[in-house]
Write a protein that binds this DNA or RNA. Structure first.
Lengths: 189, 189
DNA sequence: CTCATAAAGCAAATATTTTGCGTTAGGTGA
DNA sequence: TCACCTAACGCAAAATATTTGCTTTATGAG
């Protein structure tokens, strides 16, 4: 039932984990959510179902695990020269990703996880991005809100709408959230 | 698979629905989430499992349905004489409810539902409250932000933290969100 | 009161999940 | 290097849960 994250790389466990994750990703391309099943994934991965049940507990947790891994940032968010610009640029690509069917499944899978730890990691991920963008701004000498204010002012409304009200998760609204969160030095209204 | 909401009251369907909902609520008192099962609920409700499967599809959807029903406001939010006060009062009781184990299960069940419609209804519910509080304020002649701004400024951060970062869902932070969202006429900073 | 229909019951057929026990890979210390 | 230890896996049987076809029943309409 407990999720083992500290899998030693190179070991058999690591290979099994990778095989299972890979099988899930493959199957997700062709099959819809309700067509996925543990025995099916196990078969594709070349392991027995009991291996999956013992390691992940159930289908929901497995899917959440896979989705969370996908969430990891590949590279540095793009630089635009201002905090507002960085936020807008990063936010737009994030919105784009998460409003897609695949992105919505990811969010949904993560939210369905009973493990609070997993949901929290999703939150820490956003915090990391905000911290990164903010530090850039600080280095440039910009006046910047705290990370907490960025979370409340930008991440929270964005996430809220991604989860509850998809149609309103738009770049235009993102601009508003950013404008209202940043200290109004020179931004027009 | 489709969720029938328009169950005619008094009919057999209505009785079954009520029996099943009641059984779930009863069982939730004693049993933990992973101990709940459809056959068990069916048995307690005096119906056959296939009835539940055909009507709700699976356990997750049934639990989400029950949780959503519980979310409904029983009565008018308390009146305090100002929008800030109304928001704080309502918000505090909401936080209290949702940070409790029962509240967290409710949120979790609703989020786990595959039906977007259900999650959206959760959102509409908050909007209704905000609209209500705002209208009171308008009637009193207070300057008030739009409902959308209230959603972004108060509901979104509150919900975000309830879902992802429970420890930070506190009345103190609620005050901050409210203060930052309302037009600063006389509020100290 | 009779008929049409939608939903429930029932039970057999499937599918999934759990479990006990034997096996194996990989790490550890002599 | 080799024997040993342990965690994780495979296998297969048992237990549960889910689906499905068909029958029965309750309710609303005519």
């Amino acid at each position: 039932m407990a999720i083992k994250e500290a899998v030693r790389p190179g070991g058999r466990s690591a290979r099994v984990q990778e095989a299972v994750h890979h099988a899930v990703r493959e199957l997700q391309i062709t099959k819809s959510r309700e067509e996925l099943s543990v025995p099916q994934i196990a078969n594709k991965a070349g392991v027995t179902p009991s291996t999956i049940y013992r390691r992940w507990g159930n289908l929901a947790e497995l899917l959440a695990d896979v989705s969370l891994e996908r969430l990891r940032p590949d590279d540095e968010p793009p630089q635009t020269g201002s905090l507002a610009g960085d936020l807008q640029a990063w936010g737009e690509q994030y919105l784009d990703e998460m409003t897609s069917p695949a992105g919505q499944w990811m969010l949904s899978d993560i939210m369905a996880s009973a493990e609070r730890e997993r949901r929290e990691r999703c939150c820490r991920y956003s915090e990391t991005i905000m911290t990164c963008l903010r530090e850039r701004a600080v280095k440039r000498g910009e006046a910047t809100p705290s990370v907490e204010d960025l979370m409340d002012g930008v991440i929270a409304p964005m996430t809220y709408r991604l989860l509850y009200d998809l149609d309103t998760a738009t770049p235009a609204r993102l601009s508003r959230w950013i404008a209202q969160t940043l200290p109004s030095t020179d931004s027009p209204d």
